[in-house]
Every structure is written in C-alpha cells, then in structure tokens.
Amino acid sequence: MTNIISKNRELLSIFYIFLKISGLTIGGGYAMIPAIERNLINKKLITEKEFFNLLSIAQSMPGPIAFNLSILLGRKLRGFWGAVFASFGVIIPPFFGIIIVASLIQANSDSVYVNKFLNGCYIATVGLTSYVLYKIMKNINYNKINIPLFFFGIVFLIINRSLTFFVFVSIVLINYFYEKGGIDC
C-alpha cells in the first residue's frame, strides 16, 4: 500500500516538474530545453549524458521538441506512466494559456491600438523566424549537395506548397544517403 502511494507521488512530482517548466517558460520549445535540463540534472534524476542523448532523439522526430523530450524523459524516469504524466504536464499550460490570451485579444480586436500592436508583434515574429533559420543553417555540416538541395527545395515549394511533405522527405533522404555514401542497409 505504501508502495503504491509513493509511486503515485513520484508520478505527480514528475507531472508537477514539467507543468511548472512549461507554464513558466514563454517563447516556445527552445526556451524550455535549458530549463528542463537544469531542473532534472540538479535534482539528480538524470545525468547530463543521458539528457543530451534523449535530446538528440527528440530532435530527430517530428513534433514539438519539448513535447517529444518530455515523453522520452518521463519514460526514462518512470516508464509508460512517467511518459504520460510528463507529456500532460507539458501540454496543459499552453492549452489553457492560448485559449485565454486569444479570447482577450479577440474581444478587443476593433481597437486601433490593439491592431497596431498586433502588426508590431507580427513584424517581430518575422525577425524571430529569420533568427531560427540562421541558427539552423549555422549548425549544418555543409557538403557539396546541401546548397543545391536547399535551393531546389525552396523553388519547388514556392511554386507548389502542396508537395511540402514529399519535398521534405526527398531532401532528407537524398542528403542522408549522400553523406552515408550510398545505400547499404
């Protein structure tokens, strides 16, 4: 009986750690990663090496990085239910936050000031996107076909957006097999 109680308590504390991090870090997934890292490593729940290993897996999957990372970390800490509790902790604050803030903005959307403010935020988002692009491109290890593939992808998608998935998968596979030096599974 005490065993069950302490197990439930551990799950709740995992839930609470992720809930707190997710609720307090504004600015998307990339801002959350250092917060998760410090929290879990300081509490000695996981080693630095394990953390970065899971982070690289989280990055290579589709989906928000912080969400993917919470599933992997939760599972590492307490198995299946750990993953469930950690990922719920991550998803609950943004879920309610967006509904509240968006309804506040919409209730005042006739105001000239709110509209100008929104235009300013939109411009900042464009600046932020160019920064994200810069960071990603800075970290690529370039080879001969990267740049041509990049331009090929851009031109293709500007002409036809409905092929996004196809173009993305082709670029990843072509580059992967080029770097690996052929297909030899």
């Binding site: 997710s22 609720g23 307090l24 870090t25 504004i26 600015g27 998307g28 997934g29 928000p64 990085i65 912080a66 969400f67 991550v90 998803i91 604050p93 943004p94 879920f95 936050g97 967006i98 509240i100 803030v101 968006a102 903005i105 919409q106 959307s109 403010f117 929104l118 235009n119 935020c121 939109y122 900042a124 988002t125 932020l128």
Partner: peptide, 16 residues
Amino acid sequence: KEILTAAQITPGPIAV
C-alpha cells in the same frame, strides 16, 4: 496575426 501573437506571449510550442 492574432493567433500568432497570442502564441508568442503564452507558453508552449507555437504549432501546438
């Protein structure tokens, strides 16, 4: 634009 701004000033991944 409204959603984009709201997403920026609330926690969580933007696509979510």
